[in-house]
């Protein structure tokens, strides 16, 4: 598939394949209304009900082609296969901390790559307005930071193991409670 499969040619000024970041994600992109895409669409087709759609779909004009989508899918496929393979690593390479540690690292890296491939291309995050990117990334960062801190506060920085408290007595397990209702 080539780039002309999309209707990009219609917009003339934009080259869909080249550095989409620059055209939509640059400084002025946040205040998207003045972007040239909108102007051109409105100017080219003043009479259509593309009034509804013109600017709304502005983001897609730089979107990948079908072929690119398939490429990304195969990359994702391969990455997932690699992920699944880590499950068998211990049987292939023998058990051991090193294997496990490498496996976990690889898994986390692949997870992040897959995450951003899907978000960036399938969800058009790379090509869309900077605002949605920031909204979404902000949510992700808040989620990651607060839950990481909360989990560490619960499991790592606890008092059970406080240096001065050499040998804390074993916890008194709670008494089991009677069957409710």
């Amino acid at each position: 598939m080539n780039e002309n499969d999309t209707d990009a040619g219609h917009f003339g000024k934009e080259d869909p394949g080249s550095e989409p970041e620059k055209s939509s994600g640059g400084e002025s992109a946040v205040a998207a209304p003045p972007s040239p895409v909108v102007a051109s669409s409105a100017g080219d087709d003043p009479d259509v009900d593309g009034r509804h759609m013109g600017h709304l779909d502005a983001g897609h004009t730089h979107g990948p082609t079908d072929g690119q989508y398939f490429t990304i899918f195969w990359v994702l496929f391969a990455l997932t296969a690699l992920e699944v393979s880590t499950y068998f690593w211990e049987s292939w390479f023998g058990e051991g901390d090193a294997v496990r540690r490498v496996g976990v690292t690889v898994l986390l890296i692949i997870m992040v790559i897959k995450f951003f491939l899907i978000a960036g291309f399938f969800m058009h995050l790379r090509f869309d307005s900077a605002l949605v990117r920031r909204v979404f990334i902000f949510g992700l960062i808040v989620a990651m930071v607060i839950y990481t801190v909360a989990m560490s506060a619960m499991n790592i920085w606890t008092d059970n193991g406080n240096p001065w408290f050499d040998d804390p007595p074993p916890p008194i397990t709670t008494t089991t409670v009677p069957e409710a209702n």
Binding site: D7, H10, D45, V48, D49, G50, M53, G54, D57
Partner: peptide, 8 residues
């Protein structure tokens, strides 16, 4: 954007 009006 005329896409909407193009008929398949």
């Amino acid at each position: 954007m005329t896409i909407v009006h193009q008929r398949s």
